[in-house]
Design a protein around this nucleic acid. Structure first.
Lengths: 223, 223
DNA sequence: CACGAATTTAACTGTTTCGTACAAAATAAT
DNA sequence: ATTATTTTGTACGAAACAGTTAAATTCGTG
């Protein structure tokens, strides 16, 4: 009942000395490369051979650990969703004043998506495929509901103090935040091309982040 | 200087009688099928053989008219952008009161994107590919700036009457409208899966359309 | 109606790509 | 010591796939 080679000591040794048995390290290596490859080229566009070539290991190991290409994609999605959840739970918004908390949450979401275009692009790819891989994964389903709890707390406190308009749907608010943050990454190529607008520079991001936060605050503002 | 087989009479005859030479009809047929196929499966995921099989014509004609798979994709994008521009220019917002005009424009955009998921999905696909096909097409570049002129007129009139807050960027407003309308289609699969929210029913769309319009109005509303 | 240009048909080519087979060895757990 | 897990490496099969060759048909035009 002891976890195989996953305890800290043996793993650390394996990595440091370049030892040969390090299943978790191999998985991480494959997942990191596959994340980039799927984010760049989509599910059909990504090449298993190319992923294998860019890892420290071989194609054989991809199939050993992930079964097939789609299994690898599911694992990549799970890892990506896992990362954002881990970071989200680090935010301490319960102690802040409602308006400040909502603005902070919005700006954090915006910054996270912009700092992690691979996550956004994976979600785009998964949506092109109608969410079938997400649906297949049990791990992910429970993940993102935690954001809603945080937001619900902020909103209810805001309504109580009169800072926010009553009667809004928390999922609506979340959708608005997500949409505005997501679009800046997902549609950057076509939008900036058509409207000749830089969307990736530090200054442009700061400007847009403020506009997005203002938009969200405008939505919850009482009449 | 007379256009070959493209005048109305001969085309109509060709279609009606099932005649063999009908270049424009063949192009339309291919484009219609390819639009669905690319929107469903992405650029790499779409299969030329599958597109060919679903047309009335053969694979060879795809290459005859569009050169290669990417050429076909560019043509599909051009046609999709062309359609939205054609409809947008039909809206008569110049005569409306600024607030009503902005709300109408927002709701129209929302409805158009939701009624035309293939358009949204094509734009997603193109963004996965960093906009390289859009960049290659001269036709599209000039297209979408017309929306900005309409929006600029509305906004300036609204500022003049005091209905809107001054100092906003028209592209920012457009981006907000686009993001909120787009997301409802682009991320429907993953979002509705995670948050167990129906986003496609008539009632859900009406609700969300109002929320989106309220959000936009909140953004331009004076302090 | 002749003749060159445009359009269409049908079978074919060569490569890419996912996934596996085979054969064996190093390492870890018990 | 023995059993299970992890790793290496190459080569290969079979299907999927984008794109082509070449000839035939139809059409506009003089």
């Amino acid at each position: 009942m002891v976890a195989a080679n996953t305890n800290r000591k043996s793993r650390a040794r394996a990595e440091a000395a370049g030892r040969s048995h390090d299943p978790e390290g191999v998985r991480r290596d494959i997942l990191a490369v596959a994340t980039e490859e799927f984010a760049d080229n989509g599910l059909s566009g990504a090449r298993v051979d190319e992923i294998a070539a860019r890892t420290q290991t071989s194609k054989r190991m991809i199939y050993y650990y992930f079964g097939d290409k789609e299994g690898l994609f599911v694992a990549v999605l799970e890892a990506a969703y896992g990362r954002i959840r881990a970071i989200e739970s680090d935010l301490d918004l319960a102690g802040m004043e409602p308006a400040a908390a909502l603005r902070t949450l919005t700006e954090f979401t915006f910054s996270y998506q912009n700092d992690n275009p691979d996550f956004v692009r994976l979600v785009m790819v998964e949506n092109i495929h109608k969410g079938v891989h997400l649906a297949r994964s049990e791990k992910i389903q429970a993940v993102n509901v935690s954001v809603l709890a945080v937001l619900r707390d902020i909103y209810q406190r805001g309504v109580a103090t009169g800072a926010f308009k009553a009667g809004l749907d928390v999922i609506d608010i979340h959708m608005t935040i997500s949409a505005l943050a997501f679009f800046n990454v997902s549609n950057r190529a076509t939008f900036s091309l058509i409207f000749k607008r830089d969307m990736a520079s530090r200054a442009a991001l700061a400007r847009r982040r403020k506009a997005v936060a203002d938009t969200v605050m405008g939505f919850v503002r009482p009449d």
